[in-house]
Every structure is written in structure tokens, then in C-alpha cells.
Design a protein around this nucleic acid. Sequence first.
DNA 1: CTTGCAACTAACTAAATAGTTAGTTATATT
DNA 2: AATATAACTAACTATTTAGTTAGTTGCAAG
Lengths: 232, 232
Amino acid sequence: MKTLPAQEPRRTKRDAVATKAAIVAAALEEFAGLGLAGARIDEIARSARVNKALLYYYFESKEHLYQGVVEQMFVAMTGALRAALGTADGPREKLLAFLDANFKVLAGKPAYARLLEQEMDIVKAFLNNLKPDTAPKFFQRIAPLLTEFRAVLEEGVKCGVFRTIDIDAVLPLLLMLVRTAVRGIPLAGKFISPSRKVSAQRRRAAAIDFITCALFTDNAQSGRSPKPGLSQ
Amino acid sequence: MKTLPAQEPRRTKRDAVATKAAIVAAALEEFAGLGLAGARIDEIARSARVNKALLYYYFESKEHLYQGVVEQMFVAMTGALRAALGTADGPREKLLAFLDANFKVLAGKPAYARLLEQEMDIVKAFLNNLKPDTAPKFFQRIAPLLTEFRAVLEEGVKCGVFRTIDIDAVLPLLLMLVRTAVRGIPLAGKFISPSRKVSAQRRRAAAIDFITCALFTDNAQSGRSPKPGLSQ
DNA sequence: CTTGCAACTAACTAAATAGTTAGTTATATT
DNA sequence: AATATAACTAACTATTTAGTTAGTTGCAAG
């Protein structure tokens, strides 16, 4: 991706885990930026300051490296998100905690948001039987978490905290809203007028305001001052 | 993309416009499915039933072909969307008409939704000065339309039809919600439970319900029965 | 200190793929 | 019917890129 200027000497000592981590980190950026097909193995090796053959020492192929990166992302994300659901009490709080955790994770690693977007397509292709054998593992990670989140929505609707919604149709929308708020949409965000650039803070506040207004039955907060509200 | 089974004889007669259209159509599917880097020129030629050299007869390079595809998409989309904004009266109606037109266009050509997603990244890369000279033209197409749509939101807020919102932050969310509703999110939509597959109809209804609840000051419709509401 | 092995590398190969070239054919115009 | 030209093609080239190979080097255990 980033054409680095003649990367220095090399890692000081030999350290398998650190090296592998460096490879995965470099691969994350490359894959998130250019996609599976667009990513260049040589570039990953270069930006990880590692010999290309080392990638094949640790990973079987480009696809396997990609899977490794995705796997690691899902581990990191599901961990944070599940923790958020666990600590909060009540549907309303759980929802807000879940959204907040999403923002935190994606804001901390913007590459995740881009990689997730791509995964959508990969999974879709997988479901259409174009690529069997690809992408089977992380379903086991993400599916239970989504089921858990779904349960939160269901409970919220049942006890009247949330409006009566089509849960299975709305759930994807919520996830996408968060991702969009984190990433922004350059087309609209920057080009409608250069002066109207919207900060991540504002996008986040707007998304949460939007979601709460659409979901909660009592809208005490309404939509005037878009104060951050949640942590950070 | 689709490995067609030994494409037949060839187009009957010579027809420059039809041939070029066939190339663009094939390229749209290929680029939307695999991305700029992942798309294969040979595959586009094959699925358009055209000699590869013909692509270079009509388009300077792979990138130019891509730009051509994007250009055509923006022409098609802005036309439909602008018409929708023009015919409706009042912010509320204009908004609903705009959303409706979005659904219609994207549902009619699903490849558009996927290509749009990619364009986000292209534009972002462009803004980050990684790829100068790329993607300059279609800004002139999309920007005025977004400005027009923004004006609708502004007017709606001013006359109290819409809640007080952070317009520049919310506008991208609206666009993304529509795209998400059209495309669906396989991860959430199909894998949370195979039995809970949600139809495009339901996703669309949920998105509109969601948006109206979050935006409109009077929520006469509320969120019980997710009836299609708008046309078709 | 030497030996066994994991960690690492320079230099290669095979295949895929964007792009070209030197032509051939259909068709509209005279 | 001759012909100019736009539409089209088979077969090629150059380059890029995933993946390999045959080895070297640091390090920890004996």
C-alpha cells in the first residue's frame, strides 16, 4: 500500500510471534485497502519488513493469510462486543453499550470497518456457492454474538422499551449505521461542500441519535444538541 | 465472473453502440463482483461475447473502462433520483420519493449497489492523494444532486416536518440505509438463523419505517405492521 | 562448544494477465 | 461494382505476481 522509503535494517532479534503479528498487521492494512484480489503479497512482505518467503512459512497461501487476518479481526471484535453486552443491564443499556463498543473497536482500527465491508461480499459469494470451502470458521464466532444481540432487541420490544420493529430486518441496519458513521461517506461527506466536513464525533452522535429516535419508545433526549452522550 | 458455457457464435450484425453497451454491461457485473483489481479483462470480453482487443478499441485501458462503467451508473442514477425530487411536493413527500427512487434503481440493478460501495473507497483514496487524476468527472454529476437532497432536509427541518438533526451527518446515513436495505447483510441476514431469511420487501419496509420514525416529527404511521407503503 | 532446529532469506519459476499488432471483414457511400 | 473506413479478430508480448527452492543464520538445549 504505502510505498515506504527503503525499509530499514530489519527486526533486531528473532521472534516468531512478533514476526507473525507484524505480517498479520501489514496484511490487514493491505487487504482492507485493496481487497483480496488487489492486495500484493510482495507489498505486505515489504511493509512488514520481512522476506516474502516468510509469509509462506507462516501461511499456506494468500487466501489463507487473508483468512487469518479476518479471523483475528473477528476474535478482537467479538471479544469487545460480547463484553459490552455482558456488563450492561437492561435492553436499552445493552443496546447503547453494544453500539458504543462498536464505535470504539472500529474507531481504534479503521481497517476493520473496510475489511468488514469486503467480508460481506465474500460471504455473499460463498452463499451463492461460487466459492465453497472459503470462510467457514468465523461464522461460529459471529453468529452467536448476533443471536445474543438479537435477543436484546427482542427483549426490548417485548417489555416496551423499543418500538415494535421487524427485528431481523432492522438488525443489519443498525450494524451498518455504526460502520457508516465510523467510516463516513466521502461522496456525501466531503463533496457536497468542502466546508461541511463532518467529524467522526458528529457522525457518531448523529448515528446514535438517529438510532435511539427510531428505536426507543420514550424519546427523552430528542434531537437538538448532539452531545456525545456515551463514554469517551 | 460467471463462467459461461462456451459462448455461442457471436453477435449477428455489426453494431457499434450495441457492442459497446454489451461491453459496459459485462464490465459492470465483473467490476461490481470482483472490484477493479479483481476484475479480469478476458472474462469481461468473454461474457460480452467480444474479442478482447475490442475493449481496447473502445476504451483506453482497464481503468478507463472502469470509469466508463461508473460514469454510466451515475448518469442512470442521478437521472432517476433527480426526477423523483422534482415531481414530489413538500419535504416529506420529496424524501419519500427520493428513497423510493433509490430502492427502485438499486433493486433494478443490484450491481449498482455493490459498485457504489467500491466507489466509496476509490473516492476516499482519491481524496487522500493516493490516486490523482482518477475519478474527477462524476463528482459534477453527484454533487449537485446531493446538494438538492440536502436542501430538502434543511427545508423539512426549518418548517418542522423533520426533527432537528445534524443534516450533514445524517445524510450519509440515509443513503447507506437504503443501500443496505437493498443489498442485505448476509452475515446478519442469513447466518443468524437460516430460517429467518428476510426478503428485500421486508428490508425495504423496515428501512423506511426506521427512517421516518427517526426523522419525522409526527409519527402517525408508527411501527406495527410493516406495510410496503410506497409504490410497488 | 557443538549440534539440532526453528526462523529466516536471495534468487528463482510458472502462471496469469493487461495490453498490442498486424491484419481481416462487413457495410455505407460513391 | 469499387472503395474507404469503421468494426472486428487471432495471436502475440511484456510484465506482474503468487508461490518455491535450496539454502543460511541465530539460538537454545545438551
